[in-house]
Write a protein that binds this DNA or RNA. Structure first.
Lengths: 355, 355
DNA sequence: TTGTAAGCGTTATCAT
DNA sequence: ATGATAACGCTTACAA
């Protein structure tokens, strides 16, 4: 490994000057800089990150911790995030360190790693409504950024989130415009903040139209195809079945499509489906049959901002300048259409036809 | 952050003595050691890993790189490995660094990280028959250990693997003892080393009994339920269908079970199924209906040995002392049974009944 | 048994 | 514009 001293010796300079030249300090002679850079390249010089870290006091390592049984079973989004984040962090010469927590104690690895004090910060994903990890890290005073946000208001930590309430509103608006009055929701697990936010937006949007969705037409579960199918089958068997489904993920929508097929219902002829699409490469909503109408917010798009926020946070930027909420795009495709004639009856509070 | 110097000052000792006391050097006075340890604990001392790394020349970071489109789509085993490995590495105060490679160039992240020279080594999973990553790392002289092994012989790198050929033999032996003569194989993707090894063992075991499995009864694909179902349906539609399936994973077996159900075949009455079980917590073979007969080798069991091998490798232990092949357990449950009377006819080379 | 001092490779603070 | 020198926190000869 060639080091600063080697370059310095080769050029008859001091290590300090070489360091300055390489790090773009303005005071160094332009000629010197050229020579230094040339030699550095020739000698295939790479700064020793460990040494840099020792002096800077930073490790350049950011932790991301998998909730072991939960996240794995749920969906491939954790991987998607890890992949995007590691690639973005690499641009800053930083690394993503992986750990996993067990179901018994989600906070344990954070405690351990904070005690070791070897990481610069953490990136959290999929916060729950009352997230223990956030509680702990806040109390410990350790830097972290969140993909999503735990409450419904403005938290006191950096985050990047999509406007989940708005997304539910957009979906309901589209369906309402198409004449749908009985809209069911297949949401994610109730303890997740995003699910709570969407649920709130969903009910608010319905209420604004004078509609309701009785509790048996709102389901919460893992983002899985099986869940979508089972829940849809059950709801469609109702005396006053929904004419449209709002799904928390494309995977759930796939399940609803199966249920529709089994029931002999055409989508969007008899039934409309709209899903939220994280745009995970493995599940392309466009390739669905019929192509899915979605609210689309690629999960991958969060990785750049989250990484930048992390770096800025470590650089001392104020938290309120590191909070972002973006909106999802509504993309209308073939899985939504006008409600079938005679199906515009709305639900009353108990879920039977109102008039 | 309390440091060595602080403890030293508090006790009127030198940092050197404190360091020795904490690191268990034999020469320090036992009383001194006690006092040092007490104070260290009281002051909540944690050695600065960065500083330790600078002097030791090691980073304490091990890389694991996801093959982005491939591994994610394939199965949850990458997560399983990451989880186990990160936990084992933590025992050595080491960390697992995550990166992802793209389909275009699997070796790219290795090149980048090797150039940065910030990792101590790599752990590779699921090697292919001719693995480019292994080629590169070997050429680069970078320490790595492999879960699995690329060739069929003894490689020149540390690895931990199960005896895939033996596992296929065990399965065939069991089925043969039950009278099965037409055994199909639903293997993993052909380019993976483990699949090649199992295929070889499968054919060898059949040949030893004077049996064959014509190519249309041997399939290769991702370890997915859909694949299992489709492949089994196709094979079962044959004029001389297999009476038993050997599946590369429990997920594939789940697909075969669906196919059997659709075809109205009872397992194990009409059809026997045996699978290899990596014992990933999310997919419990015992809970299958009927409970699956498997060759079982928990993937998690590889994590401890792999971590130890990595550490030993870095400590200079010879490679030939770091190569392990373990055998899988054969666990007979309800999915295998005696062949149905009149179904013992064997295949000839073309896959029609021999006699 | 303990202390002193050098060193790991880099950056930052003084001088010059 | 460049060079000495100290510093980051720890380990390890070498001295005492």
């Amino acid at each position: 490994m060639t080091k600063l001293k080697d370059i310095a010796a080769r050029l008859g300079l001091s290590p300090a000057t070489v360091s300055r030249a390489l790090n773009g300090f303005p005071e160094v002679n332009e000629q010197t800089r050229q020579r230094v850079q040339a030699v550095a390249r020739a000698m295939n010089y790479r700064p020793n990150q460990i040494a840099q870290k020792l002096v800077s006091g930073r490790s350049g390592m950011i932790g991301m911790i998998l909730r072991s049984p939960v996240d794995v079973a749920t969906d491939p989004s954790f991987f998607e995030m890890m992949t995007g984040l590691s690639s973005r962090l690499a641009d800053y010469d930083m690394d993503l360190v992986f750990h996993a927590s067990s179901a018994e104690d989600e906070v344990a690895p954070y405690r351990r790693l904070v005690a070791k004090a070897t990481l610069d910060g953490f990136i959290l994903n999929a916060p729950t409504v009352d997230d223990q990890r956030i509680r702990f890290l806040t109390a410990a005073g350790v830097p972290f950024v969140v993909h999503g946000r735990a409450g419904t208001g403005m938290p006191d930590y950096p985050f990047f989130d999509i406007d989940n309430a708005a997304l539910a509103r957009q979906s309901v608006a589209l369906l309402h415009d198409l004449g749908h009055r009985r809209i069911a929701m297949l949401n994610g697990p109730a303890n997740y903040a995003y699910a709570a936010q969407r649920l709130k937006g969903f009910h608010a949007a319905l209420a604004a139209q004078g509609l309701t969705a009785p509790s048996r037409f709102v389901a919460h579960d893992r983002l899985a195809e099986d869940y979508g199918q089972r829940a849809a089958e059950k709801m469609l068997a109702d005396a006053a079945p929904p004419t449209a489904f709002l799904c928390a993920s494309t995977l759930i929508a796939a399940g609803v499509l199966r249920a529709a097929r089994k029931a002999g219902l055409s989508v969007a002829g008899d039934l409309s489906i709209i899903a939220h699409d994280d745009a995970i490469p493995q599940f392309r909503a466009v390739n669905f049959e019929p192509a899915l109408t979605v609210t689309r917010a690629p999960m991958r798009d969060a990785c750049g901002p989250l990484t930048d926020k992390m770096v800025h946070l470590l650089d001392g930027v104020a938290i309120q300048d590191l909070q972002t909420i973006v909106s999802a795009d509504l993309i209308v495709r073939q899985s939504t259409g006008p409600v079938r004639a005679g199906q515009q009856g709305r639900w009353n509070e108990t879920g039977v036809l109102a008039d």
